Computed example of a mutant assay.
Amino acid sequence: MIYNILIVDDEEGIRMAIKRALEKHRIDFPFLDEPIKLSLYEAESAERALEILSDTHMDIILLDNKLPGMQGIDIMPYLNEHYPDTKILIITSFASLDIALEATKHGAFDFIPKPFTPQELKNAIEIASKQIYLNSIIKDMDKEARKIRFKFLSILSHELKTPITTLEGYIYMIKEKQLGDNIDNYMELIDKMLNKLEEMRTLIMDLLDFTNLQAESTIGEKELLSLKEIIMFSIDSQRPLAIQKSITFDIDIKSPLNIFASKNEMEILFNNLINNAIKYNKNNGKIIIKGEENDNNIIIKIKDTGIGINENDLPHIFDEFYRTVDAKSRRLSGTGLGLSIVKKMIELYNGTIEVESKVNEYTEFTIILPKIEDNKTKNFIDN
């Protein structure tokens, strides 16, 4: 397998340095028969880059913003429209990080600040390549569901290597008593280990939920549930996280909100939404949850007073593996699968989810679920 990479920079020295760093580099993922090779192309201007793109498909573009004639950021709309599957990495100086962030909002996959080391460049290319490969697997899932799903899980489990390596290092520090004999000296390490374990647990659970939903499989048997009880349980289980940020809850749910559904699925759904409302909220913020029902539907609104979602991110927040620019820049942990899982679960129940947001003010999700799925459900409730 070969990935084509286009290097767009008006400085020949930069282009040559990038080529030297990448020309012999190979990228290895689980279940690949052989590593991915990189085929490198170069252009000294945006105009020349567009000429090459018209003849050759590129998987990754390394795009310098400061180009003669046409700036790198100026061609982002064109690249997004005509090459939506190509991953674009903006190369910029530290003084131009604001431009790089703006480019990311307009569809750039990531940015690489100058000066960068060969290893930093390789890491960025590997992350982009991993995303390309995962996207190709997702597209093929319908054709080879079992085989591809197994590959998909195996590749993403590869993501567990970093936290496992970190945990191993901490454990050896404790075993060898590198901080002395006093157990109090190790409390910070233990807290970090617990955080890493939580990241791993979240990743594994998201992957399992996602693959089940890709196959349109129900997670658990359906039963008569009170969504009010599910929501209150989710709040109680995550209240310690809210307390850490001094976040308060304002709950207005007057009826039980009965529904015939899988308890596991409803818990996953509301755990994701409430966890997001905490994670992306501000210190001393508030989470407002309202629930009501009419003859046909249950309507639940979950609103936070947090960082909000940029209007360029809003159309994509339910996409698999999508993470907003603010989430990346603030280094908030996450798999980019949570809201995708939420949307797929709601759609399994013929429901809908909508989002409204204003940056630095609020984000509000509105979930509408049919009260009664079919006649069998109605008879169950009546009896």
Rank of each mutant, 00 (worst) to 15 (best):
F116Q: 07
K177N: 03
L208Q: 13
T92V: 08
S45M: 05
E229M: 03
N123K: 13
I132K: 05
T56M: 10
G220E: 04
N80P: 01
K19G: 07
E159K: 07
N80F: 09
D64C: 09
N65W: 00
E229Y: 00
H57I: 04
E44R: 12
T211Y: 04
D74M: 06
Y133I: 02
H25M: 05
M16S: 15
L225F: 07
K66W: 00
T202C: 00
M187N: 15
K147V: 06
E354Q: 14
H316D: 12
E34T: 10
D326R: 14
F321Y: 15
I274Y: 04
A215H: 09
N182S: 15
K147M: 07
V8Q: 10
Q71N: 11
E51T: 13
F94N: 11
F116P: 07
T166D: 06
G336M: 05
D64H: 05
Y322F: 15
Q238I: 03
M16N: 15
I251T: 10
F31I: 05
E221Y: 10
T104A: 13
F321D: 14
N296K: 12
I91S: 12
L314E: 04
E168V: 05
Y362K: 03
K263M: 12
E42P: 07
R239A: 07
D28H: 13
F152D: 05
I127A: 12
K114M: 06
L50Y: 04
R146K: 15
K263A: 11
S357V: 01
I91R: 12
G220H: 02
I247Q: 08
D85F: 01
T363H: 01
I112K: 09
E102T: 06
D326P: 03
N294L: 03
F270N: 02
R323S: 14
S237G: 04
V8N: 10
P84L: 04
V8M: 11
M345D: 01
Y3S: 00
E267W: 01
I289W: 01
I299S: 10
L62Q: 06
I243H: 11
P30C: 00
E347S: 08
F321Q: 11
I309K: 10
K254F: 05
P315Y: 07
E229T: 11
N185G: 09
S255E: 14
I353K: 06
I99T: 11
P68S: 04
M76V: 06
F380N: 11
R149V: 01
D250E: 13
F152S: 05
I298D: 03
M58W: 09
F380M: 12
V325S: 12
F270L: 01
N4S: 13
V359E: 15
N4A: 08
E11C: 11
D184K: 14
D9A: 07
S357Y: 05
L179I: 01
K282V: 08
A145V: 12
M70L: 15
R331T: 04
K87H: 11
G336Y: 04
S45G: 01
I341L: 00
Q71A: 11
R26D: 01
L208W: 07
L53Y: 02
A242Q: 08
F31S: 11
S93H: 03
Y170T: 00
D74K: 12
L369D: 09
E267S: 13
R330N: 13
E23A: 13
T117I: 03
N383P: 02
G306C: 06
N4L: 01
F31K: 14
